[in-house]
Simulated scan of single mutants.
Amino acid sequence: MSRAGSPLRRPWSTTRAMQAALVALAFAGAAPGAWAGGRATPASASHPASGTRGAPFQFSVIGHIWRDSGGVDSGSDEAMLRRALADAGAAAPAFIVATGLKATAEPCSDKLYGQRRQLFNDVEVPLIVSLAGSDWTECLNSAGRSNAIERLNRLRELLFTDSQSLGGRRLTLTRQSGTAKFRSYAENAHWEYGNVLFATINLPAKNNHFRPEAGRNSEYEDRLVANRAWLHRLFALAEHRKLIGLVLFSDGDVGVQAERSFSLLSGFLPKQDGYAEPRRQIRNLAEQYKGTVLLVDAQGTGNEPAINWHGKVGHLSLAADWAEVRIAPGAATLFVVKGGNADAAPQ
């Protein structure tokens, strides 16, 4: 029994046919050479990263640090981001993951997107962007109507044009857009480092951009299909390569550790819970996976960052802060937040 509740159920056995199908899906569209050895390299080079299997390392993740001052003090948001990037980089991480690039109140302009891209590229270490809802879901056009889909597509064009991370040194990533069926979803990316698989997935805050007034939620429904395939691919790949851990970065907290009958939206019908399907899928896949899973999101409450364990699944929720996560293969706890109060082992 863990501190966070009952342990997850025992894995269900899977048939050889299902395993073969998942492995085939995992490798579909993978970039050539994506699993060769290598290190993070300057921006002019293009090599995948691996780290040394069995050696400890750390990465930094920046939460939703924006104050959302409503435009009264727009410079404070960028100042906070610059400070967080400097502090996170000073910890000498293998890479940094930034959950989002702007506050909701900041403009959804190409100019701001470009400025933040340059800011991320100025960081010495590799940097991967995990999109946040504030980057695109609340954007409006000049007529005051939602411009979310157009802005999401523009972010894909500006930030995710190739298989490289941002930063002064680069990591080679494998993007879901490498698969023809999901060529629009370049924001979903994975990379392997030190016997652990890391991945981003577009699950924005505020109910996964489910819009009950919109009739057919085309953006939400299409992304749901892409994310379903992406999650299967990630867990199949981690299992096939016998990786000891899988870290999944998203903006929204899908509520994997909540009670199974619980809806994140009090008073809403289950069909209106935009996280219901990914929550169920992550639970099922995590139960079958032999390694340790860490879910990282940007919906924390402002307390000191800590990993909450439920069986072999950990949950780290960041607010207006950043955290350094240390990975120690072979230790009692695979993932530990440095300086946090989350160093108890999963049970």
Rank of each mutant, 00 (worst) to 15 (best):
G194K: 04
H190V: 08
A189N: 09
L248Y: 06
A189W: 04
D253R: 02
S146N: 11
N153A: 15
E138D: 14
F182L: 15
H232K: 13
V225W: 02
V247W: 02
G267R: 10
A148D: 14
S163H: 08
H240Y: 12
L203V: 15
L197F: 05
L197K: 04
K181V: 11
E259L: 13
S266I: 04
K206S: 13
Q257S: 10
H209K: 09
E150H: 13
L197A: 07
E239A: 15
V247R: 01
A148T: 14
L224Q: 10
Q164Y: 07
S165Q: 03
R228Y: 10
L265D: 00
R151S: 12
R241T: 07
L140R: 08
Q272D: 13
R228D: 15
G255D: 00
T174P: 02
R170V: 15
I244K: 04
F210Q: 07
Q176T: 12
G252C: 03
F249G: 00
A229L: 08
Y275L: 05
T161I: 08
N153R: 15
L140Q: 05
F262P: 00
H232I: 05
R211Y: 00
E239D: 13
N227E: 07
I149L: 10
F235Q: 03
L264Y: 01
R183T: 14
S263W: 04
Q176F: 06
L269Q: 11
S134Q: 09
G194Q: 05
S218K: 14
E150I: 15
L203K: 06
P212E: 08
A229T: 05
K181M: 14
Q257W: 01
